[in-house]
């Protein structure tokens, strides 16, 4: 057995923080698995909900944006294929964001009774969203088969954009989770963002439509825009050009927000209990 020497001191968590995280990696799986298992307990439809939610979201958006707003006229491929990548990213992002931002408060019983590197909790909420995203991908392929549409080689970049979307949610959610411990206002704000966020992200429309607007650079500060543009490029190939204008701001957002919130989280994690 390796020697464990721990110093407990003011404002200083263990020196071997990341080694400890690595040692407890099983806990990451277990907590993630718990969330997945609990998700559809006592439901009749079970995992089918994983299909129903993105499907209904996509159908409603096709109806509202494609039929009513008549955006589908400009599209050379079935409009639902344009919408689904947006829905996949948006559901994945918004779900991860709400889970992560609530993770510390929601697991308050653990935080106040047992020690382990706290960052495992928000991190482990990745699994639930990932599972749903996988199911939504399967749904996309079902539509591809139906419309006889073949995604190109770009497809292999899809995981990268999923990870980037997760990191964007992680960066902002982690910051919010720390604030939420002390200020429960966060728990009020997040559902609000989740509810209206898709209007300011190219979920149900292509970002081509807003590219020429003067406010487009501001629009791109939203990291979800970059992730959706990216995933659309992966899945639709030539029908959606790779968009550097949204990709670069997203990358910068992800790097800064993740580094900053990890620093912020570690600075505060030892005093969570006092505010829970």
């Amino acid at each position: 057995m390796d020697r464990n020497e721990v110093f407990i001191k003011v404002g200083k968590s263990s020196l071997n923080y990341w080694r400890e995280v690595w040692r407890q990696r099983e806990l990451f799986w277990i907590l993630g698995k718990r969330d997945v298992m609990v998700r559809y307990k006592q439901t009749i439809l079970g995992v089918a909900w994983g299909v129903i939610r993105p499907l209904l979201t996509a159908l409603v958006m096709v109806f509202a944006f494609g039929k009513i707003a008549k955006l589908e006229q400009d599209s050379s491929i079935p409009y639902i294929l344009v919408v689904i990548p947006g829905v996949i990213i948006w559901l994945f992002f918004s779900q991860s964001l709400s889970q992560i931002s609530n993770s510390i408060v929601g697991n308050g019983n653990l935080v106040s009774k047992v020690y382990f590197p706290r960052i495992i909790i928000p991190f482990s909420s990745l699994l639930v969203g990932l599972l749903d995203a996988m199911i939504a991908f399967a749904m996309f392929f079902a539509f591809c088969i139906y419309f006889q549409f073949l995604p190109g080689w770009h497809f292999f970049f899809a995981p990268i954009f999923l990870i980037l979307a997760y990191l964007a949610a992680f960066g902002s959610g982690l910051f919010a989770s720390v604030l939420n411990v002390k200020y429960r206002d966060i728990a009020q704000i997040i559902p609000f963002i989740v509810q209206f966020g898709y209007f300011i992200s190219p979920v149900a429309y292509s970002s081509e439509r807003v590219k020429t607007e003067w406010w487009y650079p501001i629009y791109n500060l939203n990291p979800v825009a970059g992730a959706i543009d990216g995933l659309r490029w992966c899945l639709l190939g030539d029908f959606a050009k790779f968009n550097w204008q949204s990709f670069i701001p997203m990358l910068i957002f992800v790097i800064i927000s993740v580094l900053f919130s990890i620093w912020f989280f570690r600075k505060n994690e030892n005093s969570f209990v006092d505010h829970l």
């Binding site: 020497e5 721990v6 001191k9 003011v10 020690y115």
Partner: peptide, 13 residues
Amino acid sequence: RITEPSSGQVKVN
């Protein structure tokens, strides 16, 4: 290690 002390230190082996 659930909460940190306001001052002082602990060495655990």
